[in-house]
């Protein structure tokens, strides 16, 4: 299960997640943009811990920081924290039904928001508007389809 059957799925999923994060959105949709990168990283940390670990999350976070133009290291921090938590609870999470997994991911994304807010607070940066707190909910809803899609891509049709 943890072996990559389609090795290209990981880089492509990460790349697409970066693209989706960069995608310009209309003003009213922007707060609702789910943290795609976190979702994808979560998937790989849960399903393929051999390839996706803390270093993977950290490096990806740095790339995302450069790509998104935020504070260098902020997303690296957020993703590292999230990955660490996921690794801790990986064995439980893997045997959760998809709905509970989604709830857990929603909690993680909320925590990610908190971390982001703390970082901003600590540095005296302006806080994001309150509407951005809806994004974790959307990410939670997107978890199940994303999970199933990546599974289908990664394992081919064998699983389905």
């Amino acid at each position: 299960m943890s072996r990559l059957r389609s090795p290209w799925v990981l880089p492509i999923s990460v790349f697409v997640a970066l693209l989706l994060g960069l995608l310009p959105l209309p003003e009213f949709l922007r707060p609702l943009r789910p943290y795609w990168l976190a979702l994808v990283v979560a998937y790989w940390v849960i399903e393929d811990p051999e390839h996706a670990g803390l270093g993977f999350a950290f490096a990806l976070g740095l790339v995302a920081d450069i790509a998104f133009g935020g504070l260098l290291g902020e997303q690296a921090l957020r993703l590292t924290v999230m990955t660490f938590i996921l690794q801790r609870f990986r064995s439980q999470l893997r045997f959760f039904p998809l709905s509970q997994q989604a709830l857990a991911i929603g909690g993680l994304l909320l925590n990610d928001r908190v971390v982001s807010a703390v970082v901003h607070l600590a540095l005296g940066e302006p806080q994001l508007p309150w509407t951005f707190w809806w994004a974790p909910a959307l990410g939670m809803l997107l978890w199940a389809p994303l999970f199933l899609m990546l599974d289908a891509l990664r394992l081919g049709r064998r699983k389905s």
């Binding site: 803390l54 270093g55 999350a57 260098l72 290291g73 690296a76 921090l77 590292t80 924290v81 540095l123």
Partner: peptide, 12 residues
């Protein structure tokens, strides 16, 4: 990693 990130954030 957290230390590195925070260091990066602060320096940036």
């Amino acid at each position: 990693y957290l230390a590195v990130s925070i260091a990066l954030i602060v320096t940036d």
